[in-house]
Computed example of a mutant assay.
Amino acid sequence: MNHLVLYAHPNPASFNHAILETTVKALEAKGEKVIVRDLYTLNFDPVLKGSDFEAFHSGQSPADIKTEQDYVSNADVITLIFPIWWTGLPAILKGYIDRVFAYGFAYAYSEDGNINKLLTGKKGIIINTHGTPTEIYDATGMTDALRKTSDAGIFEFVGIEPLEHLFFGSVPQVDDNARKEMLTQVEAKISSLF
């Protein structure tokens, strides 16, 4: 299978980067093909512009968007790895979704007003970290809200079947042994899925 990993964390020494490395190694150990798009390293422009809309409507995506859409088109599985900031996606990843998962590419409306999910047949995985303890996110409904906005609001909206959504809380506060256990969970989950 072809895997596209969209990674969004600016610090190459972050725990998110360790998750990225673990994910890639687990996939490659299973013989999977993996392409990583590190949005910060790419300096991806997250700002959706009026000119982007004009290009979409004319059927000509801007070159940077077309490049990413080609990666998405060729992927069987799309994995998002990112920290939860302000209870949402980092701006660079939100902008990636805004620009790349565009109308006419990822979804469209039919004449009867229904949504045509243009990425149907693909699978999705999301791996998140956050500083808040998991128990607080669970108790306040934040974990469920994040599942709805990401799994349903992004993946399912365009036809991508969510396979897994892993959350790791208290990451800055826990010790290295706890983080190693989190990486073990990532490796085990990825290995079990493919």
Rank of each mutant, 00 (worst) to 15 (best):
T140K: 14
N43T: 13
L42M: 15
P172K: 04
L183S: 03
E164H: 03
R147I: 15
W86A: 00
G169C: 12
F101S: 02
D151C: 09
G88C: 01
P10F: 03
V186D: 05
D151K: 08
L20E: 06
G113C: 05
D64Q: 08
V34R: 08
E28V: 13
L119C: 06
P62V: 01
N16I: 00
D175Q: 13
S192D: 04
Y71A: 15
Q60P: 05
K180V: 10
D151T: 11
T22N: 04
Y40G: 09
N128C: 12
T143G: 00
A91K: 10
M142Y: 09
S61Y: 15
K25V: 14
H165M: 01
L80Y: 13
I84S: 05
S61E: 14
N74R: 11
I126T: 05
G169L: 07
T140H: 11
L119M: 10
S73Y: 08
A106W: 05
E164N: 12
I154L: 12
V5R: 11
E135Q: 10
S73K: 15
T79M: 11
A152V: 15
E135W: 12
R179W: 05
S73L: 10
I65F: 13
A152Y: 12
T149M: 09
T184G: 12
Y137N: 11
E164M: 13
L146N: 13
T134W: 07
L183N: 01
H130L: 11
T79H: 09
L166R: 03
Y71C: 11
Y96T: 00
E161V: 07
N11A: 10
V5S: 11
A29P: 01
K33A: 13
N128T: 10
N114V: 06
T87F: 14
I127Y: 09
P62H: 07
G159K: 01
F82I: 01
A55K: 09
A91H: 01
T132R: 02
I97S: 02
T120M: 06
P10A: 08
V47N: 09
R179A: 11
T134F: 12
I65P: 05
A91Y: 08
H17G: 07
E111A: 12
R99H: 05
Y137E: 03
T134K: 09
L93I: 06
L166H: 07
A145E: 02
Y109T: 06
N114L: 06
R179H: 08
V77E: 11
F56A: 04
K122I: 04
K25C: 14
L163C: 10
G31C: 08
V77R: 15
F167W: 14
Q173E: 13
P10W: 04
A106S: 07
W86H: 05
K49Y: 08
W85L: 11
G141E: 08
P83C: 00
P12Y: 03
G153D: 07
